[in-house]
Computed example of a mutant assay.
Amino acid sequence: MGTRFETNMTVAFHDLDPLQIVWHGNYLKYFDIARFGLFASVGVDLYAYMLEKHYVFPVTRSSLKHIVPLRAFDQFTCSATVTECQYKIVLNFEIRKGPDMLLCARGSSEQLAVRFPEMEMEFQIPDDIRRALEG
């Protein structure tokens, strides 16, 4: 396993659906917050990387399993863990809430390295990104 990052959040009222639980699409937003926190924690600024080294790292696959819903003002932790970073970047996510850290959702994502602006897929993650993510 590679680098792990956790961030604490609180459900905002505007994240709720008519059933007064977090709308399903917002879980991917929470995953993205953890993803960018993880990259920042290892010193990788993806926007600067695009400008300087001409690579982007689009999400090409994501999955999400809802287990227990989040509700208004729940405090929760979203974690992101690197599980692969040789040919693609694979992150696993978990959302847990409350003092007992009840598992609410689990997911994963895959990102590829793409040359920019040509938009040509590379077959390996650049060495500097791989080393940073491996910890």
Score class of each variant (00 low, 15 high):
T83H: 13
G135K: 12
G135S: 09
E52V: 02
Y27C: 02
F73L: 10
L102K: 14
E52P: 06
N92I: 10
R61M: 07
K65T: 08
Q75S: 12
C104Q: 08
R131L: 13
I67S: 06
Y55S: 07
C104V: 04
I129A: 00
D45F: 02
Q75E: 13
S63K: 04
R71D: 04
H14N: 12
N92C: 11
L133G: 09
I95F: 06
L28W: 04
H14I: 02
H24S: 05
K88W: 02
S79D: 01
K53Y: 15
S41Q: 06
Y30I: 05
P69R: 01
V11Y: 07
I95M: 10
L51C: 09
Q86Y: 04
T3V: 08
K65M: 06
F57Y: 12
A48M: 09
S79Q: 07
D100N: 14
L19N: 15
P126Y: 07
S62M: 11
K53W: 08
G2D: 05
I21G: 12
G98Q: 09
F123A: 07
E6S: 14
Q86D: 11
H66G: 04
F57M: 09
V90H: 13
F31P: 00
D32K: 07
E6L: 10
R96Q: 13
F76K: 07
R131K: 14
I89Y: 01
V22T: 01
E122W: 00
R71P: 09
Y47L: 14
G2W: 10
Y87Q: 15
F5Y: 14
V42R: 04
D127G: 09
F116N: 00
R96W: 01
I89R: 00
F36N: 10
T60Q: 05
N92F: 05
P126E: 05
P18H: 00
I129R: 01
D100L: 14
S109K: 04
C104W: 06
M1V: 12
V68T: 15
P117R: 12
V59H: 05
I33Q: 14
N92M: 09
P58N: 00
V42H: 07
M119K: 08
G107D: 00
G43L: 04
L19T: 08
K29L: 11
G43F: 04
L28M: 11
F76A: 04
P99W: 13
L46K: 02
V68E: 14
E84C: 04
A132Y: 14
G25Y: 02
F123H: 13
